[in-house]
């Protein structure tokens, strides 16, 4: 599970940046044709994100189907895992597209992209844990709930963890989380937040692409 939650964003980020840099000639060719700018860039974004999602879903789905997941009771948890993987791909490809559009310098672009992935996957958790330790005298359940929402990787991780009933291991905070994420409302709220996480960078792709010079 952790492999998916950490690796999918990385693959999304790196492929996204690589694609947007290497398709620059193609973009220039298309820009001189009678096509709307937004169409070109959103088309490219969806092209990358959808194919990565497909490879995730098929690559994981087929072996698990053969293994016999469809008959087991784990099918819903597995589906949730694939769903959050798909969300993470869409989010991080969009973030990568933004970075690639903002920076002409490929090395800089790659650097920022990898940093964002590293920040979301590792550093954020570290900061989160430190803040929990520092402020341990205060009630932190609301804070941790919100802090989770601001990082799509954490959000997906916790969403899946709680579905797997490991939340008992997390003590009191786990109970709060379980109360929130375990219910349908919590589930839909988190999927809503993930959707917002997709929407914002996509909106920025549209805005940047309309202003950029080629």
């Amino acid at each position: 599970m952790n492999i998916i939650i950490v690796l999918t964003p990385m693959i999304g980020t790196i492929f996204g940046v690589m694609y947007f840099y290497s398709s620059r000639e193609f973009t220039e060719l298309l820009l001189a044709q009678p096509i709307r700018r937004t169409t070109i860039f959103l088309g490219q974004y969806l092209g990358v994100a959808l194919s990565l999602t497909m490879s995730l879903v098929l690559g994981l789905g087929i072996p698990f189907l053969i293994y016999g997941i469809a008959q087991s009771s784990e099918i819903w948890n597995f589906g949730l895992l694939l769903l959050s993987g798909a969300f993470l791909t869409f989010i991080f490809v969009a973030v990568a597209a933004n970075i690639a559009l903002m920076h002409e310098n490929k090395i800089k672009g790659f650097g920022y992209a990898i940093f964002i992935w590293l920040f979301m996957a590792v550093i954020y958790d570290g900061l989160f844990l430190i803040s929990l330790v520092v402020f341990e005298d205060y009630p932190l359940d609301k804070f941790s709930l919100f802090a989770t929402m601001f990082n799509p990787i954490d959000l997906s991780r916790i969403l899946i963890l709680l579905k797997l009933d490991i939340s008992a291991l997390l003590g009191y905070t786990g109970a709060i989380f379980q109360k929130f994420f375990g219910t349908n409302t919590g589930m839909f709220a988190s999927i809503g937040v993930l959707l917002v996480w997709c929407g914002i960078p996509v909106f920025f792709i549209k805005r940047i692409s309309e202003k950029k010079d080629f």
């Binding site: 398709s23 620059r24 000639e25 193609f26 220039e28 060719l29 001189a32 009678p34 096509i35 700018r37």
Partner: peptide, 21 residues
């Protein structure tokens, strides 16, 4: 500005021939 239909009437030859390889 912000339009694209007018490019139907234009044929453009870019300076450096850069194509998807």
């Amino acid at each position: 500005k912000g339009q694209w239909q007018y490019r139907e009437d234009i044929n453009y030859l870019p300076q450096i021939a850069r194509f998807p390889e």
